[in-house]
Design a protein around this nucleic acid. Structure first.
Lengths: 108, 108
DNA sequence: ATAATAGTTAAGTATGTACTTGAGTATTAT
DNA sequence: ATAATACTCAAGTACATACTTAACTATTAT
């Protein structure tokens, strides 16, 4: 299975869109239906469904349909793929600078 | 200040491209010149420079030119913006998962 | 049965993006 | 001085993407 390695590309690609990140932020507060998820977004429901497909295909979101209602929730571990990649790129010297006080000490 | 908020968008957008992530991976091993950074990539130097501009504008990479050579290095703290966003979402769903039974019973 | 709801799907458009080529500049080597 | 190096910049192209509209299906309500 190349699922995880192939995924890292699609996960970052998915997170590269601000609308999809907004959807993730919303879903991080709890599961909800497609139309409820669409409410604060100023795009059509069809567009939301398309974004949802992207998020689902890369494993960031899981959905299930009961009756005519589809419920969406964040897939635990999906974001971990992205987090792991970021953590690998941080060298020991970067880890230190990750703290605010060190950032402030850095000249422009 | 929405400076940081505006950045989060460009940072994730930058990381959404696999070539740019490959460049970040390379640079995480240490600073190097533009042409050396371009070596393993099967694209023109001009394209690499364009990617470099994207990475620099969003604060993931810093470069400085000495003579005719431009040296690139990872900007400490740039990746932290992305990491913090992810961690915020992760915390949220972890909290929710602690009360999964409540979620399942959640009405409309 | 009829209507309303919730989502789905296809097709088209418009803009963005990654990439190339080709010509240019500034710096270093001979 | 001439040539090679290390980029830099502008313009164009091909493809990806976010989005819309409009017609459709399936489920629930009246």
């Amino acid at each position: 299975m190349n699922g995880k390695q192939a995924n890292i590309d699609s996960v970052f690609h998915a997170l590269g869109d601000s609308t999809r990140r907004a959807m993730m932020e919303r879903l991080s507060e709890g599961p909800m239906t497609v139309s409820r998820l669409a409410e604060p977004l100023s795009i059509t429901l069809a567009a939301v469904v398309q974004h949802l497909q992207v998020l689902e295909e890369c494993g960031l979101v899981k959905t299930e349909k009961h009756g005519r209602v589809r419920t969406c929730r964040i897939e635990p571990g999906g974001l971990a793929v992205a987090r792991e990649w970021i953590d690998k790129r941080r060298t020991s010297w970067e880890e230190r600078l990750d703290r605010l006080d060190v950032l402030l000490a850095e000249p422009e």
